[in-house]
Design a binder for these strands. Sequence first.
DNA 1: CTTGCACCTCACGCGACGTGAGGATGCAGT
DNA 2: ACTGCATCCTCACGTCGCGTGAGGTGCAAG
Lengths: 256, 256
Amino acid sequence: MGHSVGQVAAFAGVTVRTLHHYDEIGLLSPSGRSHAGHRRYEDADLDRLQQILYYRELGFPLDEIAVLISDPEADPMEHLRRQHSVLTERIERLRKMAAAVERAMEARKLGINLTPEEKFEVFGDHDPEQYAEEVEQRWGRTEAYRESQLRTASYTKEDWLRVQAEADDINTRIAALMDSGAEPMSEAAMDLAEEHRQHICRNFYDCTHHIHSCIAEMFVNDERFTTNIDAIKPGMAAFMRAAMLANAARALPEGS
Amino acid sequence: MGHSVGQVAAFAGVTVRTLHHYDEIGLLSPSGRSHAGHRRYEDADLDRLQQILYYRELGFPLDEIAVLISDPEADPMEHLRRQHSVLTERIERLRKMAAAVERAMEARKLGINLTPEEKFEVFGDHDPEQYAEEVEQRWGRTEAYRESQLRTASYTKEDWLRVQAEADDINTRIAALMDSGAEPMSEAAMDLAEEHRQHICRNFYDCTHHIHSCIAEMFVNDERFTTNIDAIKPGMAAFMRAAMLANAARALPEGS
DNA sequence: CTTGCACCTCACGCGACGTGAGGATGCAGT
DNA sequence: ACTGCATCCTCACGTCGCGTGAGGTGCAAG
């Protein structure tokens, strides 16, 4: 009775070294040794190993696995739920990446693909890196930024021009609204703010109302944004901030 | 002109250390240095970095990335196709894992979950490890085995009994077919072989016709399988082998 | 002239093992 | 009983993609 390392390794689909490693770090120590010091794994050890491999397959680090299978307090159901959400997140992320790759392929099929230089050309006078850097400093580690990086990576020159045109359109309509003497809290202003948010969602990343509110604050607190926006029409940055915050408050009535 | 490490790091959403590392391994060496020895990244370097991060995001190891973006022969479209297939594979894998987790949760919700001991009880006289070990030695490193491990890990006692019952049903019907004097290449025999394959697909892993053919060979070449199967009815192992191979040939008319 | 920041170069650490080196043990055949 | 040879043991260093200091330099502002 009892199995040798080699047998267990072959049975479980891992290497002998892996079992040695698990023994070293105390994750799975065989219940006994032969008189020559050879590891002897009993059925209980195999069960434990199976659990270890199960959690490992799900991407848990070994130290967490040790806690999971040793701690009788911890609710396994809770772990499963957490792990499921982790998996769905990863799947979603990969699906977005796959979509980005598909768009890149589409762009290639359509012939003219943009070189990085072209990508910068599109922005004309103002340097996109200025914004990108700023955005990065605030949102650098977020999913939103990575998503934006991935999505824009496959944008063609035409895409950029379209995005630019859409933004211009929204801006001119906001300027016109201001000329008409409308309040930033008015229905019309909030609708345009919402359009602005949707524009970001469509073209860059999933811009929640919360993120949009942060951007609104940046519009007035960051000179670079303020001057650029007020260049379209004086006072527009402040107008947009108010409209964007009102729009967010409209969508999220309570707190945060 | 030119950007410092810190600027590039902030812009690209990576750490300075990462850029140092890429410089160390020659993946991305800045085109110049300032008189003080500070790295100066030009726009071309940024483009290269963007590509590197793109491939990195897709999970390629750095040395492969170096080949991919340096090789002028390689068709970018080809890269994209490969990336896309890599992504879809991973998504599929994750989806299966998520499904396994869902089943595990389902099993918990239903209350009685099987202990490893129960899992073995089900098999009664013949030891499942015997097969598992054998299967592992031949399919150990394949996706199929890992999938099977994941799926069976969440099986309850009832699941095992059902699986067992299904297998018994197929076996008795094959035995009956043999009694009727049918040929192993007959339509009926091939249909039962296909049922056998589907049974594996449903309960263990994605058993392709190729894998099924390999199993067919094992049935006659491996005593352990042969004796167990011939115990149901003498000559049954050989009969099943022939039927399974014929079924595979029917599904895959040409080669391999 | 100090302060402070961004930069530099070592160089060790991590996580989960891979990959030998060098030696002891177990089992089969002769 | 002897000879292989596979399997086992214990160090112990290598890998990958960086993180994380340690200790020193360059440069502008106060």
